[in-house]
Design a protein around this nucleic acid. Structure first.
Length: 475
RNA sequence: GGCCCCAUCGUCUAGAGGCCUAGGACACCACCCUCUCAAGGUGGCGACACGGGUUCGAAUCCCGUUGGGGCUGCCA
């Protein structure tokens, strides 16, 4: 048997749906695993979707995900003559006919309670082509078509339940069924791997191919759908479903790719974080699950965090920089890459996405820390010794060596002096300097910030504390 | 309504008749570690939808029920 040929055939919509991305990934893994050919085909028969930038967007996003293709992108918009020729042949051979029924007319003919759908009204009317007619394929009324599916087994469709479908619109453009059937045959696609939502249309494509005289029948693999928390197909309305959305939130392509591979399939040995080449080696379409999978962003975030932590620090720094430079909450010129580098290893194991990086280090670049009210109340107002702790810290920090270990020691001494645990004593200092109760390790943070800014912030906090202690004088 | 698909912890899954007192991961809870938060470690909670078969034996095979989903466009 010759090497498999598979294709990813998206319609350009301006973004890449995560479900499509997964279909692309599975096709790609299948091709790479089998030594087959991965074809990219853009289904842009609809003129409104045939814009160059939309196609380029798909290419860019696939590349971002690390998926490359061996052929294409073919664009259906440049192959319209093939579909027109096929339609003409079907018409000439009496396998298709013109129909001028509107949706309303079809519905009006449907008796109450009867299943809706086209009834073959125009089959024998002998209509000519006009501005009012679309071309329908005459499907058989008897018999059945069997779809051979590597994931679902053989699926049988009774021809009596199939309606004659439109294959060419009034304006002469082909519907996806026609373009799809023609191209898969023309491009010698051997395995069609796509979403399960396309399963019901499969017998029609097969019948169409047969009418066109294609004797080859591709093998199918219908992937389980990606669903939301309510088990419904992911919709654009309610979810972030564009691959680009995740990219913009600071997800790593290898993490998203790895997570996507986990939906409907499981790498061997129960491992979940698996390098691409090992995925490719282990991938088998037959092993793909049948049940729909919930696209769980919580787990995606975990996978991303794992990849983030595994990055060499220098790479993490490089990847973080764009997030630190774009719309920062601090004056842009205050960003000091060297300062960020100093704390980067500490930040790296505390974020799940690159998008979280700025908030974790904002205190280093802000003129003044943005003090969180709740943190202040808990760590400063709520600690009777807060004022004294700040005083002692100021005194100690003025002279101690400006190095994390020494700052740590000095702070421990302050804590001991007040009979406090270090955890308690460091809290007001942390809030005074960083504005929050949580963040990267304090002493390394102070070292990176520098002695002068640290003292300044501590004194400011001390003043605020004092003003809150004395009752505000009434006018 | 019709056609089609699906059904293991909350979620993603392992499981292809005895290895299952059903394994792992995420999430959650507790403890340990600890300057906060993470990370890490340990432990815990937690599932074979239901009913019939087949079989010495069923999460695994068959049938039915129930539940969920998809399709039913001159979108793809």
């Amino acid at each position: 048997m010759s090497a498999p040929r598979v294709r990813f055939a998206p319609a350009p919509t301006g973004f890449l749906h995560v479900g499509s991305a997964r279909a692309a990934l599975f096709n790609w893994m299948f091709a790479r695993h089998t030594g087959g050919t991965f074809v990219l085909r853009i289904e842009d028969t609809d003129p409104a979707r045939s814009r160059d930038e939309l196609v380029e967007g798909i290419e860019r996003t696939l590349h971002w995900l690390g998926l490359d293709w061996d052929e294409g992108p073919y664009r259906q918009s440049t192959r319209m003559h093939l579909y027109a020729e096929a339609a003409a042949r079907l018409l000439a051979e009496g396998r298709a006919y013109w129909c001028d029924c509107s949706r309303e007319a079809i519905d009006a003919r449907t008796p109450p309670g009867a299943p809706p759908g086209y009834d073959g009204f125009c089959r024998e009317r002998g209509l000519e082509r006009s501005a009012e007619t679309a071309l329908r394929l005459h499907l058989p009324d008897e018999g059945e078509t069997v779809v051979h599916d590597l994931i679902r087994g053989d699926v049988h469709f009774d021809h009596a339940t199939l309606e004659d479908v439109v294959i060419q619109r009034r304006d002469g453009t082909p519907t996806f069924l026609l373009a799809n059937a023609v191209d898969d045959a023309d491009m010698a696609i051997s395995h069609v791997i796509r979403g399960e939502d396309l399963l019901p249309s499969t017998p029609k494509v097969l019948l169409l191919r047969q009418a066109l005289g294609n004797l080859e029948v591709p093998i199918f693999a219908h992937l389980p759908l990606l669903v939301d928390d309510k088990r419904a197909k992911l919709s654009k309305r309610r979810h972030a479903i564009a691959v680009e959305d995740y990219r913009d939130q600071g997800y790593l392509p290898e993490a998203l790719r790895n997570y996507l591979a986990l939906l409907g399939w499981a790498p061997p040995d129960g491992r979940e974080i698996v390098p691409l080449d090992e995925m490719v080696e282990a991938f088998e379409v037959e092993a793909v699950n049948k049940a729909p999978a919930f696209f769980d962003t919580v787990k995606l975030a975990h996978v991303n965090a794992r990849y983030l932590r595994a990055l060499p620090v220098a790479t993490f720094v490089r990847e973080s920089l764009p997030w630190l430079m774009q719309d920062p909450p601090w004056p842009p010129e205050r960003l000091d890459p060297a300062v960020f580098e100093a704390v980067a290893p500490l930040v790296q194991e505390r974020v799940q996405t690159l998008g979280e990086v700025p908030a974790m280090v904002d205190f280093l670049f802000l003129e003044e820390p943005c003090i969180d009210d709740e943190s202040w109340a808990k760590a400063v107002t709520g600690l009777p010794e807060a004022g004294a702790v700040l005083d002692d810290a100021i005194a100690a920090f003025e002279s101690c060596p400006w190095e994390a270990e020494a700052i740590h020691q000095a702070t421990s001494d302050v804590a001991v002096g007040h009979g406090l645990k270090l955890a308690k004593a460091q809290a007001p200092i942390r809030v005074a300097v960083t504005g929050r109760r949580v963040g990267p390790p304090l002493f390394e943070s102070l070292q990176a910030l520098g002695r002068a800014p640290t003292l300044e912030r501590l004194r400011a906090a001390r003043r605020r504390w004092a003003s809150e202690q004395s009752p505000t004088p009434s006018p």
